[in-house]
Simulated scan of single mutants.
Amino acid sequence: MSVAGSRFPNMPPAMTRLAFPDYLEHLRSDSARFRDVLADCDPAARVPACPDWDAADLLWHLAGVQWFWASVIRKRPAGPGEDDPGPDRPGSYPALLAFFDECAASLVAQLEAADPTEPAWSWAPEQTVGFTFRRQAHEALIHRLDAEQTAGEVTGLDPRLAADGVAELMDVMYGGEAPEWGRTEMGEELVEIQMTDVEQSLFVRPGMFFGTDPDSGKNYDGPHLLLAEPGDAAAVVRGKAADLDAWLWKRRDDSGIEVSGDRRVYDAMISAVSEPLT
């Protein structure tokens, strides 16, 4: 079955993308908000979406992530060495804040000086500096939300960045084309994701991935997704992009998100996004 057509433009998968200066500005502003919120937070406060972490762990996590990707861009196009030593965790909360300041400034400076089209290592098929622009803007956005939830000072997500976050989740974090050591078997039916605050739709095809990473020996058989060209949808998921992005990242519940159509196809999509991300 198909569900009645969307009122929104049918967006090809790449059309949610922002300009690279916009990603950089979001990275800068969300990192600053993350830091400001945590500066006045109890270091022992628990992080709701990551209950094994407290505020100090969250601060250390994003500092380490930004340290790592600043290093990747600085050393491009070479990837990280297996024996590269990482930073030592500072011993106090003020020192953690100072270390985060250094890491955030370094990542922004490295990206400011780089051409997004230059080759650079990533763990994804996209091997350019531009991957880090986009990925780290979304990383800062979600962890800014984590910081706000930890401190009880939640503010809204930027709708355009959130819409691209939904696309990135479907195409990079939970889906995408198979590597050479894997294969996909995708279903015929589509799920339409209607993002009401930006009046855009994305289409995703649920299916299965099969493969074992020859480097790690880890098997990745399981539900999978591919962003698809627009078509007749068997199921529709509808809500604000900001709510959908936070929901798919397991940072909020599904209140305000509407589901219609074939529940079996919807459930296949949900199975593919069930593993929590940090």
Score class of each variant (00 low, 15 high):
54 D>S: 02
2 S>D: 15
4 A>Y: 01
61 H>A: 12
203 F>N: 05
210 F>M: 05
78 A>E: 15
173 M>C: 09
5 G>E: 13
139 E>R: 09
39 A>C: 06
82 E>S: 14
71 S>M: 06
254 D>K: 08
178 A>D: 12
142 I>N: 04
158 D>I: 10
244 L>V: 08
217 G>L: 09
160 R>S: 11
140 A>C: 09
180 E>V: 07
149 Q>N: 05
105 A>V: 07
70 A>Q: 03
116 P>A: 03
266 Y>F: 15
141 L>S: 05
229 E>W: 14
168 E>W: 04
182 G>W: 09
71 S>A: 14
181 W>R: 02
219 N>P: 01
29 S>K: 10
252 R>A: 13
50 C>S: 09
151 A>K: 02
227 L>R: 08
56 A>V: 09
158 D>V: 05
77 P>T: 13
71 S>D: 15
10 N>P: 09
179 P>Y: 11
22 D>Q: 14
265 V>L: 03
138 H>E: 03
142 I>G: 00
253 D>T: 11
199 E>S: 15
78 A>L: 11
35 R>Y: 04
38 L>A: 00
150 T>A: 05
243 D>Y: 06
180 E>P: 10
276 P>R: 04
125 P>C: 08
10 N>V: 15
127 Q>L: 12
77 P>Q: 04
228 A>P: 12
273 V>H: 00
141 L>G: 00
19 A>Q: 14
80 P>L: 14
27 L>N: 12
176 G>M: 06
262 D>H: 13
79 G>E: 02
128 T>H: 06
141 L>W: 12
118 E>F: 10
70 A>H: 02
114 A>P: 08
147 A>S: 06
276 P>T: 08
208 M>T: 08
222 G>D: 03
166 V>W: 09
160 R>P: 00
11 M>A: 08
11 M>H: 06
188 E>D: 15
148 E>Y: 05
61 H>M: 04
43 P>M: 05
211 G>F: 07
149 Q>H: 09
101 D>R: 07
145 L>F: 07
90 P>H: 07
242 A>G: 15
51 P>L: 07
265 V>S: 03
164 D>Y: 10
166 V>P: 05
99 F>H: 12
153 E>G: 01
33 R>D: 08
202 L>A: 13
96 L>S: 10
126 E>A: 14
236 V>Y: 00
88 D>A: 15
116 P>H: 03
68 F>W: 14
180 E>C: 05
3 V>R: 11
205 R>S: 06
64 G>Y: 04
211 G>Q: 02
204 V>Y: 02
31 S>M: 12
130 G>K: 02
168 E>D: 11
224 H>V: 12
21 P>K: 09
113 A>G: 04
103 C>K: 13
185 E>N: 14
270 I>P: 00
233 A>P: 12
218 K>A: 13
269 M>I: 13
